[in-house]
Nucleic acid binder design. Sequence first.
DNA 1: AGGATAGGCGTACGGCGTAAGTGTGTCAAC
DNA 2: GTTGACACACTTACGCCGTACGCCTATCCT
Lengths: 207, 207
Amino acid sequence: MPLTRDRITEAALRLMDAEGLEAVSMRRIAREVGVEAMSLYNHVEDKDDLLNAVIERVMQEFPFPEAVDDDPIVYGRRLAHCWRNLLRAHPSVIQLFGERKHSGASVDSLRPMDEALSALRRAGLSESDAAQAFHTIGSFIFGTVMMETGQPFGNGEHARAFPTGIEAELPNVAACASFLAECDLDAQFEFGLDLMLEGLRAKIEVA
Amino acid sequence: MPLTRDRITEAALRLMDAEGLEAVSMRRIAREVGVEAMSLYNHVEDKDDLLNAVIERVMQEFPFPEAVDDDPIVYGRRLAHCWRNLLRAHPSVIQLFGERKHSGASVDSLRPMDEALSALRRAGLSESDAAQAFHTIGSFIFGTVMMETGQPFGNGEHARAFPTGIEAELPNVAACASFLAECDLDAQFEFGLDLMLEGLRAKIEVA
DNA sequence: AGGATAGGCGTACGGCGTAAGTGTGTCAAC
DNA sequence: GTTGACACACTTACGCCGTACGCCTATCCT
């Protein structure tokens, strides 16, 4: 089996899904495909190039919904779920987005973006508002998935160990602690999505 | 001037603000404070410990607004801006949040969170809804700042070079391209914040 | 005075990305 | 059938990284 750019990209993705981004080194990828590290450079310019290829690959497997002939807001909600699922399937790509410019986006990797913009415009938004709404919802999706997977604030095994003696100093954190720690991630996502889509509907009705 | 944990933490933060997270190495921090790398370990357990201390320090300088006696939604909006400003001032901490668990949160670092939850509850949200809204808005803020600083989709020097021949394949991206690329980041943030806060107001009125 | 302790320093190990050079197997042209 | 070119894997080596381990000295308590 010959070594190819695709085999390398796939191995890198598999590795980072399984063991996290910090496990991804050229030497380790090489071992994974049964080769020495420097051989990778015959198919890849550098590690950066490889990681961009990984992003590209992930974007290409974007799981589009089958049906399109819907209320555009409903379809937009479906697209949002697709984004979330994709990112949850490959949590490390979020870190990649955070660290790199991802300057070389291909047509294929922009197709999901086009689809989302299309839905927003069909819903009645101007080009400018569609762009803003896309950014907003996109940021929200990235942020939630990042929080789900990195858990900056809560959601350890079952309940986060907040520092003791909290009730006096942080009454609101204490009161909401159980909801912050044990919240259902799907419900959480739905809550935020509703907030934004309702806001959008209101904005459209005004116009 | 004796070497202390604080001096080390400060140097690390200064370094990562100035040159990015990848420039932060134990050897480099040591050089920065005029010491050999291994001396740092007298004050810091490990690099992880140090980075957590940096996060902690950033949280402690949270720039609370002066006035509190407002419409809670207005106050919430102000808090959101404070969060954004803090994260924009130290963009690398977002990467830190993406990579680590940040398991040891102190009381001080949770105070901004308490303040936000307090505003949401005063606005009339249940404890559960306040927790959800906090997560939603927090995710949005993290996401926007991440996109602003990492620019995964656009906003290069002036306009991103989308692949050529886009109009046919990606009509919506093409149509919105100028708005995606040149958008005013502040206006963008306001747009999203409005969307969510309007959604919240609607939710509160129903109850 | 003497011993403990704190807090510096030096060395060393295994891993990293990758520049540069070495070998080998395939295949076209003669 | 020989030769040359080329693709592609391998080897070596450099300067980084985090940090285990041990040494050295200055300070302070008794």
